[in-house]
Computed example of a mutant assay.
Amino acid sequence: MAKENVKKMMGVLAGVFAHTGHLTKDEARDMAGMDEKEFDGVYDKAANVVKKLESYDKPGEKYDKFAEHLYEELEEFVEKFGPFGV
């Protein structure tokens, strides 16, 4: 189960780079090791991250908010690992 959650997190991150034009969708899917159907779900999460980042005008704001918005989309996968003791 942990492997599948990490795979999904990798898919979301790779999907962000596909949505921003740094990778093709196929490259991102291959990097995540997913088939097309499996990747579509995480690709939508990646789209949410990019959409939220587009609302910021200054590049510095985008960088500051990137981790926050990425975590929002990854949270359901991260929670399955239990508390990290932070």
Rank of each mutant, 00 (worst) to 15 (best):
D30G: 11
K58T: 12
L13A: 05
V50E: 09
E79M: 05
S55E: 12
E68D: 03
L70C: 02
E72T: 12
Y63C: 05
F17R: 15
D57Y: 11
P83Y: 07
L53Q: 04
G21S: 13
V78K: 06
D30E: 07
L70N: 03
V12R: 00
G85W: 05
P59K: 02
E38H: 04
H69R: 03
A28R: 11
K52H: 10
F17D: 12
G11F: 00
L53D: 00
M34N: 11
E36R: 08
G11W: 00
V49I: 07
G11M: 06
K65R: 02
R29A: 10
D30H: 12
L53H: 04
H19E: 09
M10E: 12
A32C: 15
R29P: 10
D64P: 01
E68C: 02
K65I: 02
A47T: 06
K80I: 09
A32W: 03
G21Q: 13
E61Q: 06
E76H: 01
D44G: 12
A67P: 02
H22G: 05
A46T: 08
Y43K: 00
D30M: 15
D44N: 08
D64I: 13
M9G: 01
D57W: 12
N5E: 15
D30R: 14
K25M: 13
K65H: 06
V78P: 09
G60Q: 07
M10D: 05
Y56R: 02
A47F: 03
T20Y: 02
E27S: 14
K80M: 09
A2G: 15
G21L: 04
M31W: 12
K25I: 12
G15D: 06
K45A: 01
F39C: 04
V12F: 02
K3W: 07
K62W: 04
V78R: 06
D57H: 07
F39P: 11
E79W: 03
L74C: 07
E27W: 04
F17C: 14
G82E: 10
A46P: 03
E27I: 08
A32I: 14
A32F: 08
E79D: 12
P59T: 07
E4V: 13
A47L: 13
V49R: 01
G60D: 11
K51L: 10
D40G: 02
L53S: 04
D30K: 15
K62S: 14
K7L: 10
A28Q: 05
A28H: 11
E73G: 10
A14Q: 09
G33Q: 15
K45D: 01
K62C: 07
G82Q: 03
P59Y: 05
R29Q: 13
H19R: 15
F81G: 14
K51R: 13
M9F: 02
L74H: 07
Y63P: 01
P83W: 09
L13Q: 02
E75A: 12
E76R: 07
V42C: 03
Y43W: 01
A67Y: 11
G41R: 08
A28V: 06
K37W: 00
E75P: 01
K62G: 08
K51P: 08
Y63Q: 09
M34S: 03
A14H: 00
L23V: 07
M34A: 04
V42Q: 02
G60P: 15
